[in-house]
């Protein structure tokens, strides 16, 4: 391998042509300046139109281009080549654990289904005031680190518990959002939300492996949110037992 060449190993699969997926090697001139992994894919696509991947904002806020880059999940558009290249080589694969539609494009239905399951919307049936509902800056601060999730699925698809039980374990991304609404002073369905999460799978399949924290491109901490949910569940259970005794 020459110093001025990059070797890109790309996961390829087109269901109409390929019986099995395979890794295809591309050799490309090393760009003169540091570019993002998405820029690299765009360069490859100019020569080989058949390469398929999702992208939109190209600045890390829309969550389209989550993929597995040299073994670690991340967003292609905000991952500089310099941070991931190993001996001028890079391997790009789709997010693990979800069915592949084509090349780097995965079917995210199961991921979205878990998101919808946690009722990701504010629930407050009281009559709304004419103006906004008030919220103290301290209460609003509790949503920081939660609402910023971009649903890129990097975390859930790096989680072994989600790989084993994608239908029953809610997964780190949706649990982060579950906690976002539990933590919102304006939401009034706390006990209902906790009850919906109290089965042995939804939350408790999390074994604190921490892959989610390690890969989140927005620097969020789903593991911490899951811990908060667990302690709320614990407290809720104690409260129920206490009220039964009384």
């Amino acid at each position: 391998m020459f110093e001025n060449k990059l070797e890109v190993s790309l996961y390829r699969y087109n269901p109409e042509e390929d019986k099995f997926p395979y890794m295809k090697k591309y050799s490309i001139d090393k760009p003169s300046k540091d570019i993002m992994v998405l820029d690299l894919l765009n360069l490859l696509k100019e020569d080989d139109q058949s390469i398929s991947y999702r992208r939109s904002c190209r600045e890390g806020v829309c969550g389209s281009d989550g993929m597995n880059i040299n073994g670690k999940n991340g967003l292609a558009c905000i991952t500089p080549l310099s941070s991931v290249l190993k001996k001028n080589k890079i391997e790009l694969r789709p997010l693990p654990g979800l069915p592949v539609i084509r090349d780097l494009v995965v079917d995210m239905s199961e991921f979205y289904a878990q998101y919808e399951k946690i009722k990701p919307f504010l629930q407050n049936e009281t009559t709304a005031p004419e103006q906004e509902r008030l919220q103290s800056p301290e209460d609003r601060d509790k949503l920081d680190g939660l609402y910023e999730c971009i649903l890129c699925a990097c975390c859930s698809t790096s989680c072994p518990s989600f790989w084993w039980n994608p239908d029953k374990f809610v997964g780190p991304a949706a649990l982060l959002q579950a906690y976002r609404f539990l933590a919102d002073s304006r939401d009034l369905k706390t006990s209902q939300r906790l009850e919906d999460l109290s089965d042995p799978f939804s939350v408790y399949r999390c074994h604190g492996i921490m892959n989610c924290v390690n890969v989140c491109p927005k620097g969020l901490n789903p593991n911490k949110a899951i811990g908060e949910i667990k302690s709320m569940l614990h407290k809720n259970k104690k409260d129920i037992i206490a009220s039964d005794i009384n």
Binding site: S56, C57, V61, C62, G63, S64, M108, Y112, I150, L151
Partner: peptide, 9 residues
């Protein structure tokens, strides 16, 4: 695109 990938984001 999936709606939350729209440019409003």
């Amino acid at each position: 695109v999936f709606p939350t990938r729209s440019h409003t984001v």
